[in-house]
């Protein structure tokens, strides 16, 4: 019985990983791709590791450490990547409505130069 539950949890996690790949392909610009890739792959990874923990209760502590590690580091690398993308002026999607960070930087640059 626990095998069936574990494999179903792994399947759901694999589905989230799959949709992370689809999101990476379909989204229009860098920032939305970062969002799709980060969120869906984090939850998918945690679900796969949880399913393995249901299979092998003896492994669950180490799997918990890996899951916690991914939970901490994946958002961090997404912040770093999005900041780098914004600071080297990667083009955003055409439907973008507002860019407060660019406005703020321009305002402070104008104040510094005048």
């Amino acid at each position: 019985m626990s095998e069936l539950i574990g494999s179903i949890v792994i399947l759901v996690g694999a589905f989230f990983l799959f949709s992370a790949g689809v999101g990476l392909l379909r989204m229009p610009d860098v920032f939305t791709r970062i969002q799709a890739g980060t969120k869906a792959s984090t939850l998918g990874n945690i679900l796969v590791l949880a399913g393995l923990g249901i299979y092998h209760p003896g492994w669950s502590l180490k799997l918990l450490i890996i899951a916690y590690f991914v939970l901490m580091t994946n958002p961090l690398s997404s912040h770093a990547l999005s900041r780098a993308a914004h600071s080297i002026r990667t083009p955003m999607a055409r439907t973008t409505v507002v860019d407060a960070l660019r406005d703020e930087n321009d305002a402070s640059a104008a104040k510094g130069s005048s």
Binding site: G23, R26, M27, K39, T42, M92, A93, T95, V98, D99
Partner: peptide, 26 residues
């Protein structure tokens, strides 16, 4: 919130036409 975020992300990803209005807010 994590599960809600992912379900919302699935809705965007599998929509036939991606209709979003992204932006950076303060």
């Amino acid at each position: 919130e994590l599960v809600k975020a992912n379900i919302e992300m699935l809705r965007y990803v599998y929509a036939p036409r991606i209709d979003i209005r992204p932006g950076i807010v303060k």
